[in-house]
Design a protein around this nucleic acid. Sequence first.
DNA 1: TGTGATAATGTAAACGATTACAGTCATCTT
DNA 2: AAGATGACTGTAATCGTTTACATTATCACA
Lengths: 351, 351
Amino acid sequence: MNLDAVAKKAGVSTATVSRVLNDLKVVKSSTRARVLKAAGELNYHPNLHARSLARGKSRTLGILVSNMENPFFFDIYRALESAAHARGYEVVVANTDYRSEQLVSSVRLMIGWRVAGLAAIVSEMDAELMQVLTDSRIPIVFYDVGTPRKNITNVRVDYKKGMKKIAEYLHSLGHTRMAFVGHHSTLGPISERRKTFLETIAGFTPGCEGQIVAGADGLEGGRQAARELLASNIHPTAILCVNDFMAVGVLRELRDQGIRVPNDISVTGFDNIKLAEFCSPALTTVHIPREQIGRTIFENLLPDSKREQMTGREILIDPELVVRESTGLARKTQGVPGGKEKALAGRSTNL
Amino acid sequence: MNLDAVAKKAGVSTATVSRVLNDLKVVKSSTRARVLKAAGELNYHPNLHARSLARGKSRTLGILVSNMENPFFFDIYRALESAAHARGYEVVVANTDYRSEQLVSSVRLMIGWRVAGLAAIVSEMDAELMQVLTDSRIPIVFYDVGTPRKNITNVRVDYKKGMKKIAEYLHSLGHTRMAFVGHHSTLGPISERRKTFLETIAGFTPGCEGQIVAGADGLEGGRQAARELLASNIHPTAILCVNDFMAVGVLRELRDQGIRVPNDISVTGFDNIKLAEFCSPALTTVHIPREQIGRTIFENLLPDSKREQMTGREILIDPELVVRESTGLARKTQGVPGGKEKALAGRSTNL
DNA sequence: TGTGATAATGTAAACGATTACAGTCATCTT
DNA sequence: AAGATGACTGTAATCGTTTACATTATCACA
């Protein structure tokens, strides 16, 4: 079913049909009606490929996320989409699953679709991909990874500040032995988050120790990491998680092992996803304004922005501590609460 | 950047470039190399709109879901996508947010993109939309809603059986006063789920009572519904939720009101999403094989299926009870545990 | 060296829209 | 009555591919 068929049926030219369908009000209302009737009867739907091709520009935005299952990503996606819809843009989303191979192929797809803009809310990155993107002239917004360049904006949360707030808070509760649970793509030796955590801990009183474990991003990954952590001889009094999603997994494992939160161990998340207030105990976390991030990304993707698009900006977002039930005073003695392990000798804290 | 530019740079015709890019191995390997080099240097990416237009058929599947935030939908989406990728198909997804207005516009979009197939995992439905879809010749699979027709397959879980298993299980634990928490789109007076619940309850010993509350699909909606329920004078001993996602919200509200689960009230979910085993207490629920559903949907979307596509099939999926921690024996007396309400007189159960 | 056969490439017509440009009317003006 | 105006509508080029068909190299063999 194409324009021609409709045109024929309505007894007009394809140009007129096109004008009707695009609401150019130059068309006489009687012909307009005739065309609409014909289109309706034929169950006609414009071929959007042909349309984009002819128009030469699209009103579709692409968004890449690492893990749509993690509500953090989903919330940004939703905010972005709703901002876009409000301005007549469509959004297509692709899940990279933290695999840079998948990222590359998704980017290829998006460029092939000639999206009007591309948002990359991903942790993984690929050096030559950056080049391809820069060359592609598409307006791009990165979240967290990447550096501003021509036609590239970077939205970044001040991760360091958030981490500091959390760590200081825990420290003020008497915690000195802390562990960090992250997922692989945030924990490579080069990763900023890992570094931030270690530096922050190191900045405290000399006796503070920081340890690191990793799992996949998700409930199961969090649980797995907690399991490893507990099986080791680290015995932290607080577990800081890279995000709320994994923290919920951690909570679960602790509960399974009979460890009380926060009495025996404190746990913190990051992001402040909805689930953080619905799990038990509710998570102490750091709020990241995903709604705002989504909107900001959209605005920076728009072609018309009068702020010159070509320089590349960086936008820094300030996270806030949210205290709930999962954190409390550090236990004075560091006996292992689960009970199945031997008591620790001589590793008293510096408090 | 178009084929022509590449062709010129490589000193060949566009036809040859196209052949190289599509891996038609008729091209001499030396020219092939030349073309690839040119394409690379120009940072060329084929325009997929033009491609689809020329080919006249796409390898893209559309999927519509009511609420991507609910892991149930997400899991189906993921399974479908991974099956699709394995066979060289792309997937685009649209969130309808339970709004049939949004559904209509998403369908329009998908048809406009000339998707090779369309999966509708939605609860909302629109009479005339069904007609549009039937007329559109696109292979379609519905989940739960809709009836099989020409070029339409219907995948359906035996909701009745699942509900029955849950209700019978609860009944065997002594529960007679049950409430059902659903979201609006599953609870209209005409909805099958509502009916199923009421019928099942009615099928038990005469004293059994069933009540119904609704909230939005989600954590918050579940909590809200629970709040209403507890504020009313229904005092159920068991709360059956339409899905796990809402059940987690219910759990949260009960905990806030000091009601112990399952000691005071039993709670059940539906779907068996991952979260169901990570919340506290872990949810008794009914397993729905989302992985399998996703794969099944994909297979029925494929054009080549030798099973004649034209008749329309129905596929029924059998759910299984999963007992965890959120259910237990009914309290013998139905005093209100929260303590802030007056005691109930004379409404003893039939046990 | 000519002759098919076969391999490699080129030509040009689709695909289904949009849109600049060029009509065609009917209606006023003068 | 001729010309101007403005309101509609039609013609045809264009967007960037694919692909049937035509054409030209290449090569083995008589």
